[in-house]
């Protein structure tokens, strides 16, 4: 145990093995972002030379970047893990979700509906996710093993106390547990680990030329699924993404960082948080808490 990165890695692997050991049907929630890619890397390490003993689940809003989807399929094929994809589009077609309207319309929040359906369809009792406590203030209070009731809801005031490294995944039928192995990692820790382990990432994270429109001071990718108003101008800029959700909810920013090393240098000086570039968290002070209560990742 030489560095804090070794400690974080060992802790995450311990949690992943507890998830495999305590549950009948765990699943890893894969978004295509750096945190869930890091999770897959950790899971491969935790069970080597065996295979990862649970599938990956991706909830596709239908508005994902093509780079994310290509990367997802290649990764799953390379490590030989089962990939399940469920579509928000289907939930809308089935009348379970309503397509949001307007300029800033995003299917991001609808993912919860599709996710809860998938949990029921496959009978998943544990969903392993890449959320980190440093991301957002409601997440700072979330347990590593976090129980969701039969409606997928999180009740922040009745969380189980979590002591030592004893994770309690005993639940009643219908309930499920969200498992967060990299809870104690910060954004910088993830990047340092990506650098150390040479983890491959989608090209979106590195500086590239892209057509964008400027909105609230950030660059939104000018993709077909983004509503572009008549008075908005499409510009070509050198940008990168700091966090990847779908096209409608994540913004890029101007950057020259072309390598992981460049990104680490850039992050040391940056004065804005990772989620500051996400329109889904800036809608209200308690936006994340409300979405989490309703079953969000």
């Amino acid at each position: 145990m030489n560095t804090y990165l070794d400690w974080l890695e060992s802790e995450a692997i311990h949690i992943l093995r507890e998830a495999a050991g305590q549950f009948e049907r765990p699943v890893l929630l894969f978004s295509g972002g750096k945190d869930s890619i890091t999770l897959v890397h950790l899971a491969a390490k935790a069970f080597y030379p065996g295979r990862i003993p649970f599938p990956l689940l991706h909830i596709d809003t239908g508005h994902n970047f093509k780079e994310t989807l290509e990367f997802r399929d290649q990764l799953a094929a390379r490590i030989g893990v089962q990939l399940i994809v469920r579509y928000v589009e289907d939930s809308i077609r089935q009348g379970k979700a309503t397509e949001p309207q307007g300029k800033n319309a995003s299917r991001n929040a609808l993912q919860s509906i599709t996710l809860l359906d998938a949990i029921e369809e496959f009978g998943f009792d544990a969903c392993i996710g890449g959320a980190r406590r440093d991301e957002e203030k409601a997440r700072a209070k979330e347990r590593i093993f976090s129980v969701r009731n039969a409606f997928g809801e999180w009740n922040p005031r009745c969380q189980r106390p979590e002591l030592w490294s004893l994770y309690n995944g005993k639940i009643q039928p219908g309930e499920n547990v969200r498992v967060f192995p990299i809870s104690n990692w910060t954004e910088l820790d993830v990047w340092h680990y990506i650098q150390r382990e040479h983890i491959a990432l989608p090209s979106l994270y590195f500086a590239h030329q892209r057509n964008v429109v400027m909105r609230n001071g950030v660059c939104m990718a000018a993709e077909p699924c983004l509503h572009i108003a008549d008075d908005e101008v499409v510009l070509n800029k050198l940008v990168r993404f700091r966090t990847i959700g779908d096209v409608t909810c994540t913004a890029a920013f101007e950057s020259h960082a072309a390598t992981v090393e460049d990104i680490l240098l850039e992050l040391h000086d940056i004065r804005y948080s990772e989620r500051g570039a996400r329109l889904d968290d800036t809608t209200s002070e308690a936006a994340m808490e409300e979405r989490k209560k309703a079953g969000y990742f």
């Binding site: 129980v147 189980r160 030592w164 309690n168 005993k170 009643q172």
Partner: peptide, 12 residues
């Protein structure tokens, strides 16, 4: 160290 759980609800 150990934790004690409710046999039915699973509560810690």
């Amino acid at each position: 160290a150990f934790i004690l759980l409710d046999e039915h609800t699973g509560q810690t």
